[in-house]
């Protein structure tokens, strides 16, 4: 039990990954697939941020000017990387939403099976 509690964020992230994957593969609606993709990507971002956590450390701005001690500071790199990853996932979402608008104009619905039937 303690083991689970200590690693709570990781269990949560694993759950989110599974939910996202289910949304993308199990759902028929194209919009829900996109939501699943977003959940999937956010869980990976959370994974980076959660793993970058360090207890008792502060933001990486120099405070002791003469002898900075590395242990007092968080590693900022995972968070910076995640800024880029968020930008990438925003771009993917934007492109996917514009696809969806086009698809809706063309087929008047977002259900995968119905669209396949319309295509024949």
């Amino acid at each position: 039990m303690e083991e689970i509690a200590a690693r709570f964020p990781y269990w949560f992230i694993g759950l989110l990954l599974a939910i996202g994957l289910y949304g993308m593969i199990g759902k028929r609606s194209l919009v829900k697939k996109l939501i699943g993709l977003n959940i999937f990507q956010s869980s990976i971002i959370l994974f980076f941020v959660a793993s970058g956590l360090k207890h008792g450390a502060s933001v990486p701005i120099l405070q002791h000017e003469h002898h900075p001690i590395a242990q007092d500071y968080l590693n900022p790199l995972p968070h910076v990387l995640m800024l880029t990853a968020i930008v990438v996932s925003v771009a993917v979402t934007g492109v996917a939403l514009s696809f969806l608008v086009k698809i809706h104009h063309e087929f008047k619905n977002e259900d995968e099976e119905t669209i396949l039937e319309q295509l024949g």
Partner: peptide
């Protein structure tokens, strides 16, 4: 092509995300 492109987007993004997870 619309449906094919949309499916390609979903699956391709899963691929990219899995790669990112591995990099983590």
């Amino acid at each position: 092509a619309m449906l094919a492109g949309y499916r390609y987007l979903i699956l391709g993004s899963i691929g990219g995300s899995l790669y990112l997870l591995g990099v983590a």
